[in-house]
């Protein structure tokens, strides 16, 4: 019967992880224990089988089948179909933060700081100006004249656990969004946008307090119950870059929508 500690040393020797002292200890032990020497030889021979076995070739066409499956998925799955639109935007964001130039970071930091100060000092002003009376429905009963511009696009959300309406309009470098939502479970709406875009305005008429977080190129809105939101995204460069709206219900992505 060989002690476990020597079996461990044999295995470690095969892996090349023994220290010089351990190797020497094993050598001495094997020199005086023929049954251990036999065990070690057999173990080494067994492990050597792997070196004599060739890797099998995967079935021909497996790679094509994987890629074809992914193409199909991108076409049929809304979660995957966000790729093309979103990827360009994400690439732009990532490219921005990979710039070796410090001004990119400084600019983003200052933009964030400015926005934070605006939120902190101007929250009352925002609420007063665009507060709970903003509109009753995005279907057109709103009476706030500055928002009654012709919508560029609008659509409905009829998704598991959440439904609503959205309307966007372009006004120069601004993209204005009205969103009315009703959900019986917590939902998260994320807006992803490029490095030259900032969230300039936000107001809510939700009965349940909603939680808005703003980070680099991403706005995250936690919603529950029934309510409506107004957001204005401002773009410095006026390239009219699209904004991606991602709707998550119970942690699952259920809808992606490009806002233009």
């Amino acid at each position: 019967m060989i002690k476990q500690e020597y079996i461990d040393l044999m295995n470690q020797e095969l892996d090349g992880t023994n220290s010089a002292d351990q190797s020497q200890e094993l050598e001495l032990f094997l020199g005086s224990h023929p049954e251990a020497r036999t065990y070690y030889r057999e173990l080494a021979q067994a492990v050597g089988v792997f070196e004599k076995v060739d890797l099998l070739d995967p079935p021909p066409g497996l790679r094509d089948s994987i890629l074809a499956h992914l193409d199909q998925q991108v076409e049929s799955d809304p979660a995957a179909s966000l790729d093309k639109d979103r990827q360009g935007l994400l690439a732009a964001c990532r490219g921005w933060f990979r710039l070796p130039l410090r001004p990119a970071y400084a600019f983003t930091f200052l933009a964030g700081l400015t926005f934070g100060l605006m939120l902190f000092t101007g929250s009352n002003w925002l609420t007063d100006r665009h507060g709970t009376d903003l509109y009753d429905s995005v279907r057109g009963t709103a009476n706030h004249s500055s928002w009654d511009l012709e919508a560029v696009s609008e659509g409905e959300l009829r998704l598991p656990g959440i439904e609503g309406l959205y309307r966007t309009m372009r006004e120069g470098p601004d993209l204005r969004l009205r969103l009315k939502l009703r959900s019986n479970k917590p939902a998260v709406i994320k807006f992803q946008y490029g490095p030259h875009t900032t969230l300039q305005h936000y107001s809510s008429s939700n009965q349940v307090p909603s939680n808005l977080t703003v980070s680099n190129s991403l706005v995250e809105l936690n919603h529950q119950g029934q309510g409506s939101y107004d957001l204005v995204f401002h773009e410095d460069m006026d390239t009219q870059a699209p904004i991606m709206m991602l709707v998550f219900s119970e942690g699952r992505l259920v809808k992606t929508q490009t806002l233009e």
Partner: peptide, 24 residues
Amino acid sequence: IQFQNGDRKAFTMLVARYEKPIFN
């Protein structure tokens, strides 16, 4: 990273690289 940035060709290269070890 290239794939995360939307380059599908990069993913094809990763498939080519790891298809065999994963299959085995």
